[in-house]
Simulated scan of single mutants.
Amino acid sequence: MVPEAGDPSLSDDDVRLYWEIRRGDDDLSADDPRLENLRSLGVVFTEPLTGRPGARPPHRVERELIRRELDEVERRLRRIRRIPSVLGALDQVASGGRCDTDAVEIVKAPAVVDHLLHNAIEASSVIWSSQTRPRHAERLAVSAVRDVAILKAGGVRYRSLYPASARSRAPEADYARMTAETGAAESRTSSRRFPRMIITDTLGMISDRRRGEGGSEPAIVVRDPALLAWLREEYELHWEASDPWFPAPEDSPSNRELVERDILRMLSGGSTREAITRTLDISPRTYTTYMAALRERFRVRTNEQLMYELGRRRDTAADG
């Protein structure tokens, strides 16, 4: 199979150069053209003090490549959101007529959204959902009774993706536990940014709202089979990078450990305090409490020292 353009891949020479740099027995300059592919993949970087090429350990390369793919997912979803405006422009040109297609449309009325979604769920065997914000406790309790009954009846499976902060909220935790106990549902959490959407066998709905924008929340409705298949593939990327909620392995990290891990990951990637609290849906005060605990655990005084110590320990573990 011929790889697509832009697919990450390494030649035998790339691998040889990588390990020469890791062992320190290379005599390469940072601008050596043979390092172009390694540098483009984030495998090799320029040491700030020596100006010589350095090699990242595989686990750090993996995180970087996954982050790039998820960023590409986000860009593609933004392009999907622009599709209705393209169709609208075509409608205006067509002699006052309207294109005979309902592959993608924007639905603004909540009652219409609920009706379309209910009918789609009734006719589907698998439901993929992702929730980006806290869910209303009373409505979620009603949904739990309905969804548990549907799952116990058989013939349908649920997949639900939540932000990592949902683990500390009782309504979402109870819903995830109740649906998981049916054996036909699985919930996961992620600290990465993902879109709010629901996908069924015949219909997909994507939220047309960014945090902090407006009070209404129209939905982008997708019915085209090719677009639905693409949306499911994008959902899978987020799903594979997330953490199982229920049932959890005996040695799985606690809720606090998951949040601490996500904070460290985002700090390592250069995220600001504001970006971290927004993405993880935690308050600035909670963030400060976590950071104080992390500095104490690593026996450092500043965030810069914390990042250095974390990187040193990871590199030591990788080399070992």
Score class of each variant (00 low, 15 high):
D25N: 15
D25Q: 14
D26V: 07
D26M: 06
D27C: 06
D27E: 13
D27H: 10
D27I: 04
L28A: 07
L28Y: 14
L28D: 04
L28K: 08
S29P: 02
S29G: 15
S29N: 13
S29L: 12
A30G: 02
A30E: 01
A30F: 02
A30C: 01
A30I: 02
A30H: 02
D31T: 08
D31P: 01
D31F: 05
D31Q: 08
D31A: 12
D31I: 04
D32Q: 08
D32H: 10
D32W: 09
P33H: 14
P33R: 13
P33A: 15
P33N: 11
R34V: 06
R34C: 05
R34N: 06
R34W: 05
R34M: 05
L35D: 12
L35W: 10
L35T: 10
L35R: 12
E36M: 06
E36R: 15
N37L: 10
N37Y: 07
N37R: 15
N37Q: 13
L38R: 08
L38N: 09
L38W: 05
R39D: 00
R39T: 12
R39I: 08
R39N: 03
R39A: 06
S40P: 01
S40H: 07
S40C: 06
L41D: 09
L41H: 11
L41C: 10
L41S: 11
L41W: 12
L41R: 10
G42F: 09
V43F: 08
V43Y: 08
V43W: 06
V43E: 04
V44L: 09
V44H: 10
V44K: 09
F45S: 09
F45R: 14
F45W: 13
F45P: 04
T46S: 01
T46P: 00
T46Y: 00
T46H: 00
E47V: 08
E47R: 08
E47F: 03
E47K: 05
P48T: 00
P48D: 02
P48E: 00
P48L: 01
P48Y: 01
L49K: 03
L49W: 01
T50E: 00
T50L: 02
R52L: 15
P53A: 12
P53W: 06
P53E: 06
P53S: 07
G54F: 02
G54V: 04
A55C: 05
R56S: 03
R56G: 00
R56C: 01
P57Y: 05
P57Q: 05
P58T: 07
P58Y: 07
H59F: 10
H59T: 14
H59A: 14
R60Y: 06
R60N: 06
R60M: 13
V61A: 10
R63F: 11
R63N: 09
R63L: 15
E64L: 15
E64Y: 13
L65P: 05
L65Q: 13
L65W: 07
I66L: 12
I66V: 15
I66Y: 03
I66K: 03
I66S: 02
R67T: 15
R67M: 08
R68M: 11
R68L: 14
R68H: 14
R68W: 11
R68D: 12
R68Y: 09
E69A: 15
E69G: 11
E69R: 15
E69S: 14
L70V: 02
L70I: 02
